[in-house]
Amino acid sequence: MLISDAPIKTKLVVRSFHPDSQAEISDLQSRLMHLGFFAGETIRITHRAPLFKEPFLVEVRGRLVALTRSEASLVEVEVKES
């Protein structure tokens, strides 16, 4: 599933940071990757903003990163098995 569909306050593991791995890496994808949205990283959605249920606030490698819905749907995750 994508971050935008993932449950809140649950540990998630990033599966792939850009679904279309053939294409050139875009600026946006590069920034996501540099912030730690990388296959194998554990992340957690801590908040979703009021009104429109976005942006998403995601904890990744010790930082809090705000993502819009479209940014959040670039990253594929799965719920971490405990």
């Binding site: 912030l35 930082r63 990163v65 705000a66 993502l67 819009t68 940014e71």
Partner: peptide, 11 residues
């Protein structure tokens, strides 16, 4: 082009 938010919230 589409816009970015992608922003870090500091502690």
């Amino acid at each position: 082009s589409p816009s970015m938010l992608l922003m870090e919230l500091p502690p």
